[in-house]
Every structure is written in C-alpha cells, then in structure tokens.
C-alpha cells in the first residue's frame, strides 16, 4: 500500500520542520499561554472587582471572544493589529508588526477569554474566610490578591490551565490559513511543493498526537498529585 509513497521527504525536510516550524509553534504556544494567563487573570479580577462597569466590559469581551471562531479572529487580528498600533502610538502610518507578533497578539487576546474563565472559577473556589482573614491582618486588596488568593487559585487550577495550554498548542496550527510557517504550515509547504500530502500530513498528525498525549499524561499525573495533597 505504501509502495508509491516517499517517506524520505520527511528526513529531507527535518531541519525545516523542527528548527523553523516546531520552534515557531512552541514559542508561540509558550508566550501566548503566559500572556493569556496574565491578561486572563486581569479580566477575571475585573469581573470580580465589584465595579459594575468594569465587570460588564470584561464580561462582554469574554463573551465576544468565546462566540467567535478562532479562524475568523486570526484573520481579524492579522489585518487589524497594525492599525491598532497606529492608533495607540499616534503614528501617521499603520505600524509594521510582522507575522509572529501578530499571531502572538491574536492568541493572547483570544486565549485570555478562556484563561479568565478558568481563573475566575479558581478565585471563586477560595473560601471567603481567607480574603476576610487577610483583610483582618491589614493586607490591602492588592496584597490579598497577590499573596493569598491568586497563588492558591493558580495552584488549584493548574491542571485545567495546562489542559487549556494543550488545546492552545493544537490551535496554533490554524495560523496555516495565513501561510505562516508554523509546524503544520511548514509541513504543508513541503507537502505541496513536492506533491507529498499523504506522507507529510500523516507525519504531522503523529507529531501533534505524541506531543499532546505526553503532555496530557503529564497533566493527569500532576492532577493525581494535587488531589493527593488536598
């Protein structure tokens, strides 16, 4: 069955696939997860802050992002980010952003909506007595969040946050629609150039599968350990 296939194409393009493609994918995943977590936590704090207007805005943002398909959001941001840059800096021309930064902004903004929901649940899972006790000790709101609530919320939610990061890792493949050479993009460029779709897509699928499986196995072990501590 595989007689007419040429799996050597994988070996020939190995450097490009991993040094360029996978590096792009993993860097994007890591930075977007970090940025999304920070921005997402801010959104969660806004929603729980008690300021009605602030909470409403944050809520609308989360609902908007969660209603839209990622592909559409990717198109939106790739075309829009330079104009936002122009608006922010007051420049006379759109700001040159580049493919990587633009994708990074897209994923941070998009994932923040999902991370914020996780962090919100995490913050709400902390019993009310704790912030009350912190305040009784004379800690300010900021200190209470920084030293008491957020570290615990983060630890409780770590498995969920990591699972979401695995989803993010898979979702970064969608930058394919912009011809950006992430891992899948690189694979498809080789596939189309050499007419080797079968070999390259099977290989890409296997790589994504192995990485995601190992990662979710790790998360499961972590989850078991956390459950044990509690």
């Amino acid at each position: 069955m595989f007689a007419s296939f040429d799996f050597d194409v994988i070996r020939r393009s190995f450097g490009y696939l991993f040094l360029d493609g996978m590096t792009f994918t993993l860097t994007l995943t890591g930075l977007a997860a970090l940025g999304g977590l920070i921005f997402g936590t801010l959104i969660a704090l806004m929603r729980l802050s008690g300021f009605k207007l602030l909470g409403r805005i944050a809520g609308l943002y989360v609902d908007l992002m969660r209603s839209l398909p990622l592909v559409l959001v990717i198109f939106w941001f790739y075309f829009l980010v330079p104009y936002i840059g122009q608006w922010v800096t007051g420049s006379s021309r759109p700001i040159q952003v580049g493919a990587f930064t633009s994708s990074l902004v897209t994923f941070i903004m998009f994932e923040a909506a999902y991370f914020s929901e996780i962090m919100r649940a995490g913050i709400q899972s902390i019993s009310k007595g704790q912030p009350a006790a912190a305040q009784a000790l004379g800690l300010t709101y900021r200190q209470t969040m920084r030293y008491v609530v957020l570290p615990q919320a983060f630890r409780n939610m770590l498995p969920v946050l990591l699972t979401q990061t695995i989803v993010l890792f898979q979702d970064t493949s969608l930058v394919y629609v912009l011809s950006i050479p992430d891992f899948l993009g690189a694979a498809s460029k080789v596939a189309q150039r050499d007419g080797r779709l079968v070999e390259m897509y099977l290989f890409a699928a296997a790589v994504y599968f192995i990485i995601s499986c190992l990662a979710s196995f790790g998360v499961r072990r972590l989850q078991a350990r956390i459950a044990f501590v509690h």
Binding site: Y78, F79, P82, Y83, Q86, P94, S102
Partner: peptide, 18 residues
C-alpha cells in the same frame, strides 16, 4: 525582512503596512 503572503492576504497586508 521577508513575510509570506497568499493571494487572499496580500492586498490587506500591503494596506496595513505588514
């Protein structure tokens, strides 16, 4: 700098300065 474009993205990316 080099930036990949497709037939679909080339005009908006030129307009927005990418």
């Amino acid at each position: 700098e080099l930036n990949p474009v497709t037939s679909s993205t080339r005009i908006p990316l030129l307009a927005n300065g990418t």
